[in-house]
Each structure stands twice: as C-alpha cells, then as structure tokens.
C-alpha cells in the first residue's frame, strides 16, 4: 500500500512511542531518513535508543505509531523489511564453536547472501582479521568480535543498516574502519540509523535526540 509518506524518504517513523512496564520511554518520535543519509540517535542511558532501533529493525512492536519502509507501512518481521535490513545489536551473533571465517559465512548466509570463502576472506582482510580467520570465535577479543560484525555489514548488500552502539569495544582504527564502511554504504544509496555516544564523520546526517 502506497501511503502519504514523503516521496524520497527511505525509512520514516511517525508518532512512535514505547512503554516498558509502566514507564514511558519516549513518545511522539517522528523522523525520516533519505537515501545516502544517516540518522544518529542520541540520548542518555535508558532513554530508549535500543528499543527504538529494535522497532525500526522490525524486532519489536511500537506501542503507538507507524514505521514506513520505502513508502510501505511495515509491521514487525515484515518480509519487505527483512529483505533489506542489516541489524547489528548488542549481541554479536557469533558461535564460539565456529572459526572467524565460518561465523562470517554463516552470518552472510543468514542475510540471504551467497558468499564464497574467497569473498569472506577478503572481507576479513578488510577488517584486519585475516590472520585470525581459523581461530574459534571464543578466543577472539571483544574488539575482534565486533570486527567480524563489520565484515558482515560489508558483505551483505542491504540498503538499511541499523547499528546499536557500533563503536563499543572498537579501537581508533576500528572506528575509522566503521566510518569508511558507513560512508561507502551511504555512497551506494544506502541509509543508516545509528545509536551512538561517539559522533562519526559522515557527509549527510540528521540527529534524533531522545530525552
């Protein structure tokens, strides 16, 4: 169903509210994200950044309000949204039993992307993990585990990135890498919603502050 959303907006939120127990986290949150644009979600701890991002990824239902993706109103787990979203939350989705490269191939496959070992190796090389490719994920450091997540974002070809605190546990090189990947993604007509305390330098962005 085409709706009255703005014509060029990729992702739109309208009148979103979240209630956890009896506490209202936020209410009447509205925004739009265009192609090539990043929306930074900021706010103090407990202001509902993660909750908002999970709603946008289609993992949880807004108490009130609607979310539009490409002009279509989407419900949680909507097939159109699942086809297009890459969500990186607090949990890394890595299996301790599998090696770095196996984890990466599994994650890319879950994203619906057919990936060869060579492609996965290249992606690991980009995040400076090619030496650790055969190590089981359980021996990798937090930052290295995060880097596998970055390699996955680079591998799967999704127009919408939803990143929750992507700079956590990353060193300065890692943050620079994240910024590069994000810029490339935006250059390729992608858009992103990022909850972060640390500003990333991208060309076009908007801010959404949760109280």
């Amino acid at each position: 169903m085409k709706s009255n959303g703005s014509p060029s907006a990729m992702l739109e939120g309208d009148g979103l509210a979240a209630v956890r127990g009896r506490a209202q986290l936020f209410a009447n949150v509205g925004f739009r994200v265009d192609a090539c644009q990043t929306l930074f979600v900021t706010g103090p701890n407990g202001s509902g950044k993660t909750t908002l991002l999970r709603m946008l990824a289609g993992l949880s239902t807004p108490t009130v309000g609607i979310i539009r993706w490409m002009g279509n109103t989407v419900a949680p787990f909507d097939a159109r949204l699942r086809e297009d979203v890459a969500f990186a939350g607090h949990l890394p989705a890595l299996k301790d039993e599998l090696s770095a490269i196996e984890n990466l191939v599994v994650l890319a496959a879950l994203g619906g992307e057919k990936v060869t070992t060579e492609q996965a190796l290249l992606a690991l090389d980009r995040v400076a993990l090619s030496r650790q490719r055969t190590l089981p994920a359980r021996v990798l450091s937090q930052g290295q585990r995060r880097r596998i997540g970055l390699a996955r974002l680079a591998l799967v070809n999704k127009p919408l990135w939803i990143l929750d605190e992507p700079t956590t546990a990353l060193d300065s090189d890692g943050v620079a890498l994240l910024t590069t990947l994000l810029c490339q993604h935006l250059d390729a007509n992608g858009c992103a919603v990022v909850a972060t305390h640390q500003p990333l330098s991208v060309p076009r962005f908007a801010n959404l502050a949760l109280a």
Partner: peptide
Amino acid sequence: DGTLEQMALS
C-alpha cells in the same frame, strides 16, 4: 548470543 535475532530478521 543474538543468532536468533538474526534468524528472525533474515
């Protein structure tokens, strides 16, 4: 470990 989230969003 979050794999289930990724499965549900896949």
